[in-house]
């Protein structure tokens, strides 16, 4: 479909709406250029792709038949798995009973000795950051590998002589400004949300929550700030460089700290990090520091996810 565009005489907001509603070949091209590997090839216009020539009836019939077969098999599989699992769930030990096999010596030890052994009042925090810390180390790296993958998939090539066309760059970073309601609410809510997130992170070993949930709240607060005040202000304190620095420091610290505790644990050496006074802010050995590290990584990663989706860079 040929599209003749005449952007003269439109203000930024109209242009942006037009881009949202109609798509923009220049932007698509820029995305393709930014994301594709050299050597550059002439890209078929994406707009030309979606309407394939009418396939011959034989092929269409084959496609329909294979789709039908797939749906049948998939339905059968779903119904079968569901039936077995529903029956399984009904057969399992009853809900909420104290004599279920899961309530054995392992949770008993976590509950009875957890406070003395890890120093964490919140037994869940003590469990995931001390008894079963290896899983949690893997977990934060799942988030990191996802961040790397999203960077590979979405980050546009800028700098190094690669510049997006000006109109495209403008449109990618376009945002509503001077929205009084949004800005007033944000200036109230952002500090509150940040404080709450920080509280949840720092008290992870004392009360519900921890690095991940607190970090997510802080990330959401940063996103709100970005939405209300724009990229320019947000980039004063957060760029791709910040994201990388914070993640490498926090993840590196996490891995090193855990390497130390795994190594000393396996070799029967005492750890220099002692549980301390239960209930104090900096007690429970490494746990508060690990929570802070996880919280930082998570907040940065969430914010980076958002900006990568929003404009292809952090």
């Amino acid at each position: 479909m040929a599209r003749i565009r005449d952007d003269t005489g439109l203000n930024a907001r109209q242009r942006f709406l037009r881009w949202l509603l109609e798509g923009d070949d220049a932007l698509d091209q820029a995305l393709a250029d930014g994301l594709d590997a050299p050597p550059p090839r002439p890209l078929p216009s994406p707009r030309a792709v979606p309407v394939p020539a009418a396939p011959d009836p034989g092929q269409r019939r084959r496609e329909r038949a294979s789709r039908w077969l797939y749906v049948c098999i998939a339905l059968l599989l779903c119904v079968g798995i569901m039936g077995i699992l529903l029956r399984t769930a009904a057969d399992l030990p009853a809900f909420g009973r104290a004599d279920n096999p899961t309530n054995n010596e392992v949770p008993a030890r976590y509950i009875e000795k957890g406070l003395q052994e890890t120093g964490a009042v919140n037994i869940v925090a003590g469990m995931i950051l001390d008894y079963r810390a290896f899983d949690t180390l893997g977990e934060s790296n799942v988030l990191f590998v996802a961040a790397c993958t999203v960077v590979i998939l979405l980050r546009l090539q800028q700098g190094d002589g690669h510049r997006l066309p000006r109109s495209v760059a403008e449109e990618l970073t376009w945002e509503p400004r001077h929205d009084v309601i949004l800005q007033t609410m944000a200036s109230l809510l952002v500090p509150l949300a940040l404080m709450f997130g920080l509280y949840v992170v720092l008290n992870g070993h004392l009360s519900p929550g921890g690095g991940f949930s607190g970090g997510t709240v802080m990330g959401a607060a940063l996103i709100l700030y970005l939405a209300a005040f724009g990229f320019e202000k947000a980039e004063r304190f957060f760029t791709f460089r910040t994201f990388r620095a914070v993640s490498v420091c926090a993840l590196g610290f996490y891995a090193l700290a855990k390497a130390y505790s795994f190594f000393t644990g396996a070799n029967g050496l005492p750890s220099v990090f002692t549980p301390g006074t239960p209930g104090a802010l900096f007690s429970a050995g490494l746990i508060p520091y690990l929570n802070i590290a996880v919280g930082l990584v998570v907040a940065c990663t969430m914010y980076a996810f958002f900006t990568l989706f929003r404009k292809g860079d952090v």
Binding site: A98, T102, N103, V106, P107, A108, Y110, I111, E112, K113, G114, L115, I123, V124, M127, I128, R132
Partner: peptide
Amino acid sequence: QAVEAYVNPIPAG
């Protein structure tokens, strides 16, 4: 710190 007081922490983790 009695087992009878708290639910199992493992599933939550």
